[in-house]
Amino acid sequence: MWVLALIVLLVVFPVVVILLKGVLDEANAIVPSIAKIRDAARAGSKDLDAVPLLLTTQRQVKETVENVAAYGGSLDVILDDAR
């Protein structure tokens, strides 16, 4: 009986504590990483608030290309061909 009591007290109990403490430490170590990922995702989402401006860029590019095409057509008439 004494042997069993000593084994439980001096072997099983420390092993259980060590294992549980390891699990708790690893779980606590994940928390700041999750916070960093959350902050990065929020920052990325905020950066994408400017995406609707792409529609303006798209329209302006189209207008610019149309103007360039008009200038190109005029230059094609004004300038002689090379050969």
Partner: peptide
Amino acid sequence: AAVVLLAAVVLIVLALVYFLVSVIFA
């Protein structure tokens, strides 16, 4: 000897409760 064994078991149970609750919060 039985008292020591019982105390060891109680300590183990308390450790389980403390660490597992902490893990749950984490």
